[in-house]
Amino acid sequence: MNSTETHPPHKRERRKEARPGELLDAALDLFVEKGFAATRSEEVAARAGVCKGTLFLYFPSKEELFKAVVRENMVRHQTEGAEEIARFEGPTAALLQYLMLEWWRRYGATKASGISKLVMSEASNFPDLARFFQEEVVTPGHAMIRSVLQRGIERGEFRPVDMDLTVHSVLAPLLFLVTWKHSMAPCCPSSQQIDPETFIRHHTELLVRGLSV
């Protein structure tokens, strides 16, 4: 046999490579189910099928584990969104609707959207994590929406507006959707359910009418 021939990784090696992702998946499940304060590190380890010591080899504290979950499930999508904005060539109204719909499909419609509700309900008890979330999620997200609005103004498609207030006007209904999803939606009859994508299209239509020159 050729000594330079490569072999597929051993099963234990493959398991080790996959372990950080398995820990993040387990942590996401528990954070969304129980909240940050109520989730214990040993529960995360048990759900991932490892011991607590193994968890701390990858993530030295529950706080660092939470940050990794946020970066994997939120920050990554924002980076993708910023790249798509730079490449987009169509009207700004279409770009705005596309971004809002993709935000829902990639984040809002997934289990990870429970992170937003968790932060809103627990941030005041964990100021360091609130500061982290503000710096790595909220501020870049606002900057991304601001860049879309500025694009529309510079192209003569949107009228000049108060940027801060308009950014909040864009994002507030999206936060409503994820809050609804993780609170009242499971309890409401089908006749009172909200179709998120229909809601987002309606919202962007109203926004664009108000923004258009």
Results as ranks from 00 to 15, higher is better:
3 S>Y: 14
10 H>D: 14
14 R>F: 13
17 E>M: 10
20 P>E: 00
23 L>H: 04
27 A>R: 12
28 L>N: 05
34 K>Q: 13
35 G>I: 08
36 F>N: 03
39 T>E: 08
40 R>F: 11
40 R>G: 06
43 E>S: 09
43 E>Q: 15
52 K>M: 09
53 G>V: 09
53 G>R: 09
56 F>W: 03
57 L>D: 06
60 P>I: 06
64 E>R: 13
65 L>W: 01
67 K>E: 15
69 V>P: 06
73 N>C: 02
73 N>Y: 11
74 M>C: 10
74 M>S: 12
75 V>M: 04
76 R>V: 04
76 R>L: 07
78 Q>D: 12
78 Q>W: 13
80 E>Q: 13
84 E>L: 14
84 E>M: 12
87 R>D: 09
89 E>P: 01
89 E>S: 13
90 G>M: 10
92 T>L: 01
95 L>Y: 02
96 L>I: 03
97 Q>C: 10
101 L>I: 13
103 W>D: 12
103 W>L: 06
105 R>L: 04
105 R>E: 12
106 R>N: 14
108 G>H: 07
110 T>Y: 03
110 T>P: 01
110 T>A: 15
111 K>G: 05
112 A>D: 08
115 I>V: 09
117 K>L: 15
120 M>N: 09
122 E>S: 01
125 N>A: 11
126 F>I: 07
132 F>L: 08
133 F>T: 03
135 E>Y: 02
136 E>C: 07
136 E>Q: 13
137 V>A: 05
139 T>W: 10
150 Q>I: 00
150 Q>T: 00
151 R>A: 03
155 R>A: 11
157 E>T: 04
157 E>A: 08
158 F>T: 00
161 V>D: 00
161 V>C: 01
166 T>R: 04
171 L>D: 08
173 P>Q: 11
175 L>P: 02
181 K>N: 11
182 H>M: 01
182 H>I: 01
182 H>F: 15
187 C>P: 02
188 C>T: 10
190 S>K: 08
196 P>F: 10
197 E>T: 09
198 T>C: 06
201 R>G: 05
203 H>C: 05
207 L>A: 02
208 V>E: 12
209 R>K: 15
